[in-house]
């Protein structure tokens, strides 16, 4: 497989936006199907049987009446016999999306992933420090083409989300980034990362390759509000600014306490 030769691989928009499994996956599938067609044509010509008789299964290429019955290697030999190396390509272009109403062009995708998260936190009432104890969650990634990789992606996404919600921020002084290194830009360490419990929800997406969607950015979204909501559930304060800093938590706790006091006085 040649990954990046513009002579034979068409131009693609790039590897971002959680689109690779979906777009490149569909294109790779299309390329494989084109290769299959070439193989059928070659064998059909040599053995003189109809193209629709072919079955590809269990690493073999055969016909129903077994007049053709080749191992995969034998089939390849027939394919390349008279022409040498075979190169095919495939493509995927998403169907036309949206409508003609206002805003119809925003955030369009041929498919959408869905994610949910539950977080357990401990809030220190004296320091305002929030400690994440556990994160559970489930992500609908369509068909999990490689379940272990999907789990890894989920853990990575939630760890990244925990960084966004707890410690990561950029502070500036006169337009210069103050925390411009990984000592001062606080990515959670292993000690700051709670046990992460992942669940893969498999659905078969009608448009994705073998029904797959994505497991990347979509998975991050749920963990941020889950942690902020867990803080609310624990101590009754609403976080409206990220990251959740100890000092903000402490300030909000004090404001809440003050409100409670005045409410009591009024009664």
């Amino acid at each position: 497989m040649i990954a990046a030769d513009t002579l034979i691989t068409p131009v693609d928009l790039g590897s971002y936006s959680s689109r690779v499994t979906f777009m490149a996956g569909n294109a790779a599938k299309d390329a494989a199907e084109n290769l299959k067609k070439e193989m059928i044509v070659a064998i059909a010509k040599k053995k003189n049987i109809a193209e629709e008789e072919f079955i590809f299964s269990e690493n073999r290429v055969f016909s129903n009446d077994k007049s053709v019955d080749f191992s995969w290697d034998e089939a390849i030999e027939i394919l390349v016999a008279n022409r040498g190396a075979v190169s095919v390509s495939g493509k995927y272009i998403s169907p036309k999306l949206g409508g003609d109403f206002k805003g119809a062009g925003a955030g369009l995708s041929p498919s959408y992933s869905f994610s949910s998260c539950v977080a357990e936190v401990k809030v220190d009432l004296e320091t305002g420090h929030v400690k994440i104890l556990n994160v559970w969650g489930a992500h609908d990634c369509g068909k999990a083409l490689n379940p272990l990789a999907v789990e890894g992606q989920l853990e990575g996404s939630w760890h990244m989300g925990i960084g966004q919600v707890m410690t990561e921020e950029m502070s500036y002084y006169n337009g210069l980034l103050v925390n411009n290194n990984f000592l001062d830009y606080k990515i959670p360490t292993t000690l700051d990362t709670p046990p992460i419990h992942t669940n893969i929800i498999e659905t078969i997406d009608p448009e994705g390759p073998f029904g797959a969607k994505e497991t990347g950015e979509g998975a991050i979204h749920a963990v941020l509000p889950a942690i902020a909501n867990a803080v609310y559930d624990a101590v009754g304060i609403r976080i409206t600014k990220l990251p959740i800093k100890s000092e903000d938590v402490l300030r909000l706790l004090k404001e809440k306490e003050k409100l409670n006091q005045t409410a009591k006085v009024k009664i």
Partner: peptide
């Protein structure tokens, strides 16, 4: 000790 993360930080 007070610090944002449980390791590394000064």
């Amino acid at each position: 000790k007070l610090r944002p993360r449980e390791a590394v930080d000064f």
